[in-house]
Simulated scan of single mutants.
Amino acid sequence: MTDRYAVIGYPVSHSKSPFIHAQFAKQTRQDLHYDAVEVEVDALAEALAHLHAEPYRGLNVTLPHKVEVAKHCEQVSARAQLAGAVNTLLRTDSGWRGDNTDGEGFLRDLKRLGYAVRGARVLVLGAGGATRGILGPLLAEQPALLAVSNRNPWKPEALAEQFKAVGTVLPRTHLAIKGDRYDLIINATSAGHTGQMPRLPGPLLAQGGACYDLSYGSAFEPFAAWAREQGAQRISDGLGMLVEQAAAAFEIWRGVRPDTAPVLAALRS
Rank of each mutant, 00 (worst) to 15 (best):
L135N: 01
H14I: 11
R112N: 05
F163S: 04
G179T: 04
A160E: 06
L175R: 14
T194E: 10
H193F: 13
V117I: 15
L89E: 08
T101K: 09
F106I: 02
G231Y: 02
A232S: 10
V256D: 05
A85V: 02
G202F: 01
A140T: 13
L59Q: 08
G119P: 13
R97E: 11
K164Q: 14
S15A: 04
T260A: 13
H193Y: 10
L59V: 11
G9Y: 08
H21C: 06
R29W: 00
L51T: 12
L239F: 05
V61E: 03
G231F: 00
V148A: 05
D42S: 13
D259I: 07
I8C: 09
T92Q: 14
A78D: 15
F24S: 11
P64E: 11
D213H: 01
P201S: 01
Q233D: 13
Q142H: 14
L204H: 09
A210G: 13
G114E: 10
K26E: 15
L90Q: 11
K155M: 08
H50N: 10
K71Y: 02
K178P: 00
S13V: 10
I177F: 00
E40C: 12
A248S: 14
T28P: 05
R97H: 14
V117Q: 01
Q23L: 03
A127Q: 13
N87M: 03
L32T: 07
N60V: 12
A247Y: 04
T88Q: 02
A227M: 02
L200F: 03
V243Q: 08
P222T: 06
S218A: 15
A266C: 03
A219Y: 02
I252Q: 08
Q196C: 08
L139G: 07
L82A: 12
R4I: 00
S13T: 09
G195D: 06
A49E: 15
Q207W: 04
L159P: 06
V61K: 02
A224D: 03
P262D: 08
E141M: 14
D259T: 09
P137W: 06
Q233T: 12
V76K: 00
S218C: 00
D99Q: 04
W96S: 03
V122A: 06
S15Q: 06
P156L: 06
L214W: 04
Y10F: 14
G133M: 06
F24R: 10
A227E: 01
R257Y: 09
R254Y: 09
P55K: 14
R181V: 01
S149K: 07
P55H: 14
Q245E: 10
Q162V: 11
R112E: 09
D259H: 07
G136P: 00
G209P: 09
V7E: 01
H14D: 12
A85M: 03
V61I: 14
G240F: 00
I185G: 04
N100Y: 01
A49D: 15
P222N: 05
A147D: 09
G208W: 04
A176D: 15
L214I: 13
A140I: 10
Q233M: 07
G129S: 14
A6K: 10
E251N: 11
V67G: 00
G240H: 01
Q142N: 13
T88G: 03
A176H: 04
V256I: 15
P137F: 11
P11M: 08
G240S: 02
Q75L: 12
E161D: 14
